Deep mutational scan, measured.
Amino acid sequence: TETRTFTDEREARRFEQEARDNGKDVQVRESNGKFEVRVK
């Protein structure tokens, strides 16, 4: 599991989409204006 934290939602979404395109299981959590993207 890899976790990346972004402050920019667009960057978080781009990373999320890229991971999904690669067939990964992705979860995005938002807290305090930060976006935590977990990739399995």
Rank of each mutant, 00 (worst) to 15 (best):
T3S: 08
K34H: 12
E11H: 03
E16R: 00
G23Q: 04
G23T: 01
R29V: 15
R10V: 14
T7M: 09
R14E: 13
S31M: 14
R29L: 14
T7I: 11
D21M: 13
E16C: 12
E11M: 06
D8T: 04
T5N: 10
V26F: 02
R4W: 11
N22W: 08
T5Y: 15
E9I: 08
Q27E: 15
F6P: 04
R13S: 07
E9R: 03
Q27F: 12
R38V: 15
T1Y: 15
D8W: 00
R29I: 15
K40W: 08
E2T: 11
R14I: 14
V39K: 00
S31D: 11
G23C: 11
N32F: 05
G33N: 05
D21L: 14
R38M: 14
T7F: 12
G23N: 07
R38D: 09
N22H: 12
N32A: 05
G33K: 03
D25E: 13
K34I: 15
N22E: 12
E16F: 04
D21I: 10
E18D: 09
R14A: 13
A19W: 06
T7A: 10
R38I: 15
Q27G: 05
T1R: 08
K24F: 15
V26R: 01
E2P: 07
E11A: 08
F6A: 05
V28I: 12
R13N: 06
V26I: 04
T1W: 15
E11N: 03
T3L: 12
R13A: 08
E9A: 07
R10T: 14
K24R: 11
N32H: 06
Q27N: 10
E9L: 07
G23P: 01
E36Y: 07
F6R: 04
Q17P: 01
E16S: 05
T3D: 08
K34M: 14
E2F: 09
E18K: 08
E16Q: 05
V26W: 00
A12G: 02
E11Q: 06
N22I: 09
N22Y: 08
F15P: 02
G33E: 03
E36F: 06
S31H: 14
A19Y: 04
Q27V: 13
T5G: 07
D21T: 10
G23L: 04
A19S: 09
R14K: 13
R13T: 06
G23V: 02
D21S: 12
N22D: 10
V26E: 01
R20D: 02
F35A: 01
A19Q: 13
F35P: 02
Q17I: 06
E16K: 00
T7K: 06
E30V: 14
Q17N: 07
E18M: 10
F15D: 03
N22M: 14
T1H: 11
E9P: 07
